[in-house]
Design a protein around this nucleic acid. Structure first.
Lengths: 359, 359
DNA sequence: TTCGGGTGACTAAGCGCTTTGGCATATACT
DNA sequence: AGTATATGCCAAAGCGCTTAGTCACCCGAA
């Protein structure tokens, strides 16, 4: 039913190996013959059998994507980026979702290896032991997208958290804020430490210090709860860098509830820009956008390079600031406007990621 | 390096075909021999070469997933469901993102076919012509998840929009609402018509009619804009079924801005339950949850059945109601509480989908 | 004792492609 | 004319697995 290479060869009056060499551009083939074979191939709409090719070559032209938790907000953009990079080279990706479950993860890793993937992208902060185990079994390239900054074995591709923290600082400084705090998650997380370091560094350059840092977790609940402590520690706070958007929103609500206006009294910068994508032309929250699609694309590109034996680009991905009303609002005190703005960013199509500029 | 079937056969003192038959449970093999081969296989940790197997069998044990727009909020849950169904049978999926672009879609379809996928899942409301074209080139099973209700060729698996509309109606009725309206997108969309039909049908049963229906688009902007018209047409409206969560939130904000309290004065039900997942224990918006992961799982299961030659389950996926404050709130008028509640559901980790009950 | 039937394994062939090595023919040179 | 060198193509072998067909053997029945 499907057209085989043998069909092309026969129709072109050559042997199968010759046709194969033409298709791959290898071997010595007369120009005239080459052209004839190519013409016939096009004529018959020959499509090589990728599976058989893989077996002969020992390469499947497939890479495995192991997501620690595909349902998380950070997986899809990375995945899209990876796929974009791969599709340029006719590679494809198999997605496996570990769902934070060690047994599932183990099964999926086995499955990936059975399918002879040429490379692996790990998305998410899976336990390092899992990666180490993977590395032992798999001898192809492994890229840990978005994972620990210094993976024990695999190569990491991740957003530049330090630069992101610095961006947040500069945003607050640009609005003239001087009494500055940072509300974030636990300092055991590398990303938390990096963001804080970048934040402090940029503030230092301006001769301003971060007076209060509160560590909790990446939830709205913690953002809300932190307000009380924040105001106790720094009553005249006028700028806050929140460790992620959830904290930012929880904090904004709690501050509003306590009579502080955002941004008039307190400017707030979030992180991840998770709600700001898509159709929204007037987002509430100013947020650092880590460009996760780019992280994915870079991870894919790195893998492609590694498969060619080259050394890929390992530079962290530079973030951007996504401006919103929480730092650049008009500062009027009409609460209803705030409610509207908040509502407007409330149920953004959650993962409608913008294509990268120029796409 | 890797263990081949030949290695197992040699170690077990049998020929390769015999070992193959043991592995597949086919042919006639003495129990004693069978056990010996299996023992050796386990001993050597034999992993069959899936690629070679695929070539010999003519089946790749891979299915292609063609997403019309992977970045959309509806893709990931479906994808996760599909993968869950597939992984139970050691199938895997290749993801391709058409990004609404016909050329990209065409390339991806070619690529999928070249890779000999055994079946295809289409996610999203891609143009029917594309599906028709696909069907012409591909003779395996095709499931159109979440697409048109009556695909021209492929089999459709989709959420039960009619039932969803009915659920919304019953939620409003249960709260004693009587002056009821529906704000939704354009009636050219099948899902819009279905939801409306289900909504009206359930209202009719209770002897109540839907007095106003406003058609626009699935955006917060339309939700906001619709408030004016809604109040003009039905000043004493006390219950609204919004076509999706975006409309619901925009409408809620606009109503609040005009002095109507939600839910005290007007109860609002959304659709998609896009923000209600995850950690939030006290969501703002009551919303119909279409259970998209289940749609995906059903699509995957249907494909599995089709590959076995069976007829799969084609019943639409039943939705649920996800209760929130917008219909069941305490109804006090402390605006700050509302702000907090809204904020709390404002930037939920956008696509943290709950695993289905029992998982 | 011989023949039929069942059992358990094997040999051979095939899937569609790639790579290696060798053999003609054509060209260049002494 | 005779040898070296290039050139273009193909036959053979291999990838790892599966399926079809074959054959030797042992049993019980005649």
């Amino acid at each position: 039913m499907a057209v085989r290479l043998a069909d092309v060869a026969r129709a072109a009056g050559v042997s199968v190996p010759t046709a194969s060499q033409v298709m791959n551009g290898t071997g010595r083939v007369a120009d005239e013959t080459r052209k004839r074979v190519l013409d016939v191939a096009k004529e018959l709409d020959y499509r090589p059998n990728a599976l058989a090719r893989s077996v002969a070559l020992g390469r499947s032209r497939t890479i495995g994507v192991l997501a620690e938790n595909a349902a998380g907000a950070f997986c899809m953009p990375v995945l899209i980026g990876v796929n974009r990079a791969l599709s340029s080279q006719d590679l494809a990706s198999l997605l496996f979702d570990a769902r934070h479950d060690p047994a599932t993860r183990r099964d999926h890793i086995r499955h990936m290896l059975d399918r002879q993937v040429d490379g692996i992208v790990v998305i998410g902060e899976g336990p390092d032991v899992a990666i180490a185990a993977l590395e032992e079994q798999f001898d192809g390239p492994i890229v840990h997208a978005f994972g620990p900054h210094d993976p024990p074995h695999a190569v990491g591709v991740y957003p530049d958290e330090f630069a992101g923290g610095a961006l947040a600082a500069r945003e607050l400084l640009a609005q003239g804020r001087k009494r500055i705090a940072h509300v974030t998650a636990g300092a055991d997380l590398p990303s938390v430490r990096e963001r804080e370091a970048g934040f402090r560094s940029a503030l230092d350059e301006a001769g301003i210090s971060c007076e209060v840092v509160l560590h909790g977790e990446f939830t709205r609940a913690w953002g809300q709860a932190s307000a009380e402590r924040l105001l106790a520690a720094l009553p005249d706070v006028d700028g806050v860098f929140a460790g992620n958007d959830g904290i930012a929103v929880g904090l904004a609500a709690a501050l509003e509830a306590r009579g502080r206006r955002v941004p008039a009294d307190v400017a707030i910068v979030g992180y991840d820009n998770v709600a700001g994508y898509g159709e929204d032309t007037k987002p509430y929250l100013t947020s650092v956008d880590p460009h996760l699609e780019l992280v994915g694309e870079r991870a894919g590109a790195y893998l492609l390079a590694a498969l060619e034996g080259d050394e890929g680009d390992r530079a962290p991905v530079a973030p951007d600031i996504a401006p919103g009303a929480s730092t650049r609002g008009e500062g009027d005190d009409r609460r209803l406007d705030l409610v509207e703005a908040l509502l407007r960013s409330a149920t953004a199509p959650p993962v409608t990621y913008l294509p990268p500029a120029g796409a």
